[in-house]
Nucleic acid binder design. Structure first.
Length: 479
RNA sequence: GGCGGCAUAGCCAAGCGGUAAGGCAGCGGUCUGCAAAACCGCAACUCCCCGGUUCGAAUCCGGGUGCCGCCUCCA
């Protein structure tokens, strides 16, 4: 099966055909850096990360652009409240966003262009739209007239006549000819940042930045545009309108939108006390990889019901996979990184890996059906664990299997690299415990094990000797 | 009011016309000095409800019910 995506633009699954062979231009709507990202935002970024990594897994070179919205009503308002410059304010949350990204193992985009650094590009588009007659000025602001763009509504399926005139007037301080229009350029206001440009002093509207930056870095027409479902209207609808009106060419070919995340089946809201940032969860002791796994384990077009119980389950599921990988690597020789010799390999094992790989790929090929792909991995583990138990897997075979796991982990990114650096004291304790065990002094052995656990070191006894691992942060059950 | 989505075991979640994947939790057993890890076995007589189409439906159609989202900034 070929790779296919549910394209919001067409409301159906379509085979993915890039504009250029083996290359993908990907634009993902990035953060407005006015606060810490919450887990709902992070779900979207994880979805985009899986999309990007899977495209790369399939052999595409991905040019991934994610914008940073560092000028808008919220950022301006809050920077004024804190009495710091807009730049100082937004850089703080931009930094936090990058930290969250790294903690969750999200692969950095190719580029993170900032809105404030692309004012000229936006102005150029607005000028072109004006030349073509799509805009009008009112009171120093420039608006896009949706009536003049025939394709308006094709993404969201919105019926223009259903948008009641007048409904938005009170909530918008800018005057428009038609309330359904959207602002391209906001007139300069006292106390707000303003740019002196050919189209007058002011600042950009929200939608125009994505048109400008995608065009600059990916071209007038590019492959994939993503965001949360809430971006379908008005944001992406407006991007299409202004981009296609300006260029006379199609904007993005495929629009992918991920569903929202709910917490305890309700929309996340600070007032409901169910609002989490990544930092909140880390402070509670939850582990980033568990969070990543939970966020990626549900199909991106299904609402994800986030619960702490679910996070606990994710932690255990991840540990099963990690334990399997760790056990493979403990087979003498471990990962060699060298192409394994196929002699003395049980062909049944090779076949089983090929089958798993096929299933994994079929899952993700089908509109990133991650649950199916994860099932293939769990089934593989279920099949191989008994062999591992019986010591029926040799070094070459273990390399084959662990290389496969490593390969799909390029997409999942949930394995841990074990870094066991023990202090001399810790090593002494471990050997003392072994001596005690040999003397059947189990009281002492257990005491030492408990002591080590207090130091964050887990000792598990196996026939081959003690297995030492560094304790991961575990979920606290309270809350 | 308009548009869209979802309802599958205690929880999470695939399946999208051919007789219920997977994970977590639970229970019983094996292994272990104990523990951990791992293994073996058990779990939906049925997929929100009611009709219909069909040889056959969780899957298609019609009608309900419930939940969520968008229509104003929002991933």
């Amino acid at each position: 099966m070929a790779l296919q995506f549910w394209n919001t633009l067409k409301r159906k699954k379509e085979e993915f055909r890039p504009l250029q062979p083996n290359r993908v231009g990907l634009y993902t709507c990035g953060p407005t850096v006015y606060d810490f990202a919450h887990i709902g935002n992070l779900r979207a970024y994880i979805f985009e990360d899986i999309l990007r990594r899977y495209l790369e897994y399939c052999g595409y070179a991905v040019n991934h652009i994610m914008n940073i919205t560092d000028i808008d009503d919220k950022t301006i308002k809050r920077s004024i409240e804190e009495n710091v410059s807009l730049t100082e304010y937004t850089r703080r949350y931009e930094k936090a966003f990058f930290e969250d990204r790294d903690i969750l193992r999200i692969k950095p985009a190719t580029l993170y262009p900032r809105a404030t650094e692309h004012i000229l590009e936006m102005v150029e588009i607005i000028k072109k739209l004006t030349e073509k007659g799509y805009t009008y000025q009112k009171d120093g602001s420039i608006y896009f007239s949706i009536e003049r763009f025939p394709g308006y509504g094709k993404l969201s399926g919105i019926d223009l006549s259903s948008l009641k005139k007048g409904a938005r007037i009170e909530s918008d301080e800018y005057e428009k000819e038609d309330v359904r229009d959207f602002v391209l350029w906001k007139k300069s206001k006292i106390g707000e940042p303003s740019y002196d440009t050919e189209i007058g002093p002011g600042r950009p509207g929200w939608h125009i930045e994505c048109s400008a930056m995608s065009m600059k870095y990916l071209g007038k027409t590019f492959d994939i545009h993503t965001g949360g479902v809430d971006n379908i209207f008005p944001h992406h609808e407006n991007e299409i309108a202004q981009s296609e009106a300006a260029n006379g060419k199609p904007f993005a070919c495929y629009f992918l939108h991920c569903a929202h995340l709910l917490v305890n089946n309700e929309k996340m809201a600070k007032s409901k006390g169910n609002f989490f940032t990544l930092r909140d969860l880390l402070d509670k002791g939850y582990d980033p990889v568990s969070i990543r796994y939970l966020l990626l384990s549900v199909h991106y077009r299904s609402p994800l019901n986030f619960t702490l119980e679910g996070l606990e389950a994710a932690k255990n599921a991840v540990e099963r996979i990690q334990n399997f990988y760790r056990r493979l690597r403990l087979i003498p020789g471990g990962i060699t990184g060298v192409s394994p010799v196929t002699e003395n390999v049980d062909q049944a094992i090779t076949k089983r890996i090929i089958q798993a790989e096929k299933e994994f790929k079929e899952g993700l090929d089908d509109d990133l059906n991650m649950p199916v792909s994860l099932a293939s991995l769990h089934n593989l583990i279920t099949d191989f664990n008994p062999k591992l138990e019986k010591d029926a897997i040799n070094e070459t075979e273990s390399n084959l299997i662990s290389n496969y796991i490593k390969e799909i982990d390029d997409v999942l990114t949930i394995l841990r690299e074990e870094k066991m650096e023990l202090t001399a004291e810790e090593e002494t304790l471990i050997s003392e415990r072994e001596t005690a065990r040999k003397k059947k002094d189990f009281a002492k052995a257990d005491a030492i094990r408990k002591d080590l656990e207090g130091r964050g070191i887990i000792v598990e006894d196996t026939p081959a000797g003690p297995r030492i691992t560094r304790k991961q942060k575990h979920a606290c059950l309270a809350d």
